[in-house]
Amino acid sequence: MKPHRLTFAFQLTVTLLACAFLMVPAGASILAGFTVNYFRGVSSGLTLKWIGEVLALYSDTIALSIAIALGTLGVTLLIGVPAAWALARRPSRLTRLVEEVVTLPVAIPGLALALALILAYGGIREFRMSPLFILTGHVLYTLPFMLRAVMAVLAAVDVRTLEEGAASLGASPLQRFFHVVVPNARGGILAGALMVVTLSIGEFNLTWMLHTPLTKTLPVGLADSYASMRLEIASAYTLVFFVMIVPLLVALQLFGRTVQGAAR
């Protein structure tokens, strides 16, 4: 049925208004990062000065965020892919239970998870002060995403039968894992990896509880700058975060589509 012209115009207006409602604050914030004096408005002139100050003040938080994201990715790959394989090849009540337990951190508030980590390991001074403490939290939080992405692909390609095929040809379990399981799970591994990096870079809840003055990540630094810096610097900082996270989100979107297409 062809929609009435007035109906269409109405729908378009509502959609555009909704978009504007969401985009205007983002646009204003981006603009603030480039404005000489936000209270006097754009008429005060545009500048890159604030960006420069952010890089000078907070480049260590940016570097730490990237390092923790990559570290989290490494650990979730090392644990997540073999774990997904183990869970996919012998589905049973036990593996269902393991899957549920591993997924729990997604449902638990980050603050509670962080508190639990501090209660359990906070006494180990060296660990508490090291960025590894934050990395541990991020791994707990992101592992289920890696696990589920890989498990979904393994189920879609019927990895059990593929493995039986490889075994019938004489392949050992290790050969099967590297020759058959990993290459055929590639789509899920890549989708999971993008997800883990995106989540880790943006994570605030848990990280805010776990950080020390010397282990601040980018989102923690953002909160810090909102509280203590002038608005233009905070906005420029947001802009830096945007530049880092948006390409990851776009990649995730594009990639998710191709993975779904391939599975179909």
């Binding site: 390609v157 019927d158 039968t161 593929l162 039986e164 095929g165 490889a166 020759h179 058959v180 290459p183 055929n184 590639r186």
Partner: peptide, 8 residues
């Protein structure tokens, strides 16, 4: 039955 050929 499903051949189990390796797609990769």
């Amino acid at each position: 039955q499903s051949y189990a050929l390796f797609p990769n």
